[in-house]
């Protein structure tokens, strides 16, 4: 993967008095291939010198609707629990081979396994799939910090209520493939809004095709 990084650090003087832990970091991610904002990237910052906010595990659902996972990228803090409901009238079989979390929930139908939660107790990226429907693919980003956000359709990820200080910045996107997240360091100054613009040249996304063809099998 060719990775080109251009970082523009633009500290702006905020108007008004800064409150305790009231700083904001906005990361704007640019996809060099499409020359537009990079959607669904994960931006996490980890305090280096200052106190680390307590990580509060959560419980969330990654649903399966019309033979797709909802959603493509789910971000949870480490220790969180996730269930995988099946909202289709067919069987699904969710699995992951990822080192971060390996699991397998065999063959279950609509309404089953609602109380079956998997615990994600190691930070990293977990790739999940369905053993029946090969094209079904989604990612779970397990954050080691509570300071994490996903970029919106404009490519902007916003982290608020930050303590001024020195942070490690991690950026991950599904198009990075097996490569590790991009890691940088960033300073969040007191009384300043910090804006970063990062341009990424990522390989195009490769997914197993879902559309039928005259040569493919009939059940999909």
């Amino acid at each position: 993967m060719k990775l080109t990084i251009k970082i523009l650090l633009i500290p702006w003087l905020s108007i008004g008095a800064a409150t305790l832990y009231g700083e904001t970091l906005t990361v704007s991610l640019l996809d060099l291939r499409s020359e537009s904002g990079l959607y669904d990237a994960v931006v996490e910052i980890i305090p280096i010198r200052q106190m680390t906010p307590e990580v509060m595990p959560i419980e969330v659902s990654v649903d399966q609707v019309d033979k797709e996972f909802i959603s493509d990228v789910t971000v949870v803090p480490v220790g969180s629990r996730i269930n995988f409901p099946n909202s289709d009238e067919i069987l699904h079989h969710v699995y992951s081979f990822s080192q971060t979390k390996s699991f397998d929930i065999p063959l279950y139908g609509a309404g089953d396994n609602l109380d079956h939660f998997e615990t994600f107790d190691r930070p990293g990226v977990v790739v999940i799939g369905c053993n029946i429907h090969d094209w079904m693919l989604a990612y779970i980003y397990v954050a080691e910090s509570a300071l994490v956000s996903k970029s919106d359709e404009l490519g902007k990820a916003r982290l608020e209520n930050l303590e001024p200080g020195h942070y490690q910045l991690k950026i991950w996107h599904a198009r990075m493939g097996d490569d590790p997240p991009l890691i940088k360091e960033v300073d969040v100054a007191a009384g300043l809004d910090t804006n970063l613009t990062i341009a990424l040249d990522l390989a195009p996304e490769r997914r197993i095709r879902r559309a039928p063809s005259s040569t493919s099998g009939r059940y999909r």
């Binding site: 559309a211 039928p212 063809s213």
Partner: peptide, 14 residues
């Protein structure tokens, strides 16, 4: 030999 062009996730032209 064939080229299959997806028109949607349920439709294709080959």
């Amino acid at each position: 030999t064939a080229i299959s062009i997806p028109l949607s996730r349920d439709t294709a032209v080959d």
